[in-house]
Design a protein around this nucleic acid. Structure first.
Lengths: 212, 212
DNA sequence: ATGCCAAATGCCACTGAGTGCCAGGTTGGT
DNA sequence: ACCAACCTGGCACTCAGTGGCATTTGGCAT
């Protein structure tokens, strides 16, 4: 978790700082020396955390690599009940909520998010883990939405389809954002939000696409 | 690969038989004793294949577990150029091609496909690997379609969205198919194709879904 | 301040996936 | 029959991830 310093108990702040230190160490190292070449043992050494604690903080090496991205989804999941109280097309609601969550991420999130996105573009294991998190998000949405749309047959499939589109839009936006020149230092949150809005606005028309 | 016996050279038939033996051994074992409890070493022992060869036949343990499902996507990818020569809405074209590929799978495919689907429902690592294969399918479609739709801006995003919907429809259909009573022995290919057609037909309307 | 308890930590040994290397065997073509 | 290419098995190795347990430490009530 990318947590603001100074919140919660001393204990939880220590944990947050350790996690933060690991992420700050890992992402640049992965980028420079390659994901496989950077071992968990080395990272633990650098961040002065025992390997055992590492696996208490993160679900695994991929989870560490995806922290900035996963934080977004986790936060969105945490807010789901509030988000789904709004009315309107589900895809729009999810899109706006996603933008809102991105805007709420802590300062400096951009730099790590860029590295994380690039990493999932180059490292299949990381990409797979990221897709899994998105799928879990979908499950949460389905679980939260079915009771809200009583008696509508096929609501589950519809929710899944909408989430799939949302995830695809998110991935496309992240890919475009990350690929800008000098993105690792210059990519701004405003640009990302604009890309996200654009993806979500364009997506519905995509189903019309025809082969000539 | 679930390959028909008797095709190709002696060498490739040996390989196909070894792969087949591994899959036939693995999927029931995974189901009965649990994915983690069944080790690669044990499987190699059973199928009389060296561990070294195992990793030459499969990309990993997950790839083995997903063989029946992955075969479908791989075959679809192999046929992509032919498939995309048709005209009409991309989603429909992909849907029909998917059904056609399923119908072409070798006899007895159903039994293993059911086990494989269940496995990805219960084992996150397997599910993640499955999602990755679908994502690679998407990449292939994007790569094949961009040159065919010259000068249409946003064609890439559109293709990705359509593939995401196709994948979601496929997953929903497989989940429904596999969950039928006694599916491990009684699930028929006809049922699956019907479910697939239904998913693909219903999907476009899903984007209209609204919150009250 | 003090002392207790639950939670966090570190350490060590262990399992299991996956790989590099190489020597020997099999196959298919000529 | 022979050769080159490819396949195979075996072995040792790395590294991710876990179980168990003794120890520390922050939180909190007194």
């Amino acid at each position: 978790m990318t947590t603001q310093p100074g919140s919660g108990t001393l204990r939880s702040r220590r944990i947050a700082r350790s996690r933060q230190r690991l992420v700050e160490t890992a992402l640049p190292a992965f980028t420079e020396r390659g994901y496989d070449a950077v071992t968990v043992d080395w990272l633990c050494d650098q961040a002065e955390v025992s390997k055992r604690s590492f696996f208490r903080y993160f679900d695994g090496k991929e989870d560490l690599a995806l922290t900035p991205l996963n934080d977004v989804w986790r936060l969105l999941i945490a807010d789901l009940d509030t988000v789904l109280d709004r009315s309107g097309p589900l895809l729009e609601v999810l899109g706006e909520a996603l933008v809102a969550v991105v805007e709420r991420m802590p300062a400096g999130w951009e730099r790590l998010a860029v590295l994380s996105t690039r990493l999932s573009g180059t490292t299949p294991a990381v990409d797979a883990a990221g897709l899994l998190v998105c799928e879990r998000f979908t499950d949460q949405v389905v679980g939260a939405i079915t009771p809200r749309l009583p008696g509508s047959p096929g609501a589950e499939l519809s929710a899944r389809v909408v989430c799939a589109v949302a995830v695809a839009g998110h991935r496309a936006a992240m890919a475009a954002w990350q690929s800008g020149p000098g993105a690792e230092t210059r990519a701004t949150r405003g640009e990302l939000c604009a890309l996200l809005r654009e993806s979500f606005a364009t997506a519905p028309a995509a189903l019309e696409i025809r082969l000539p």
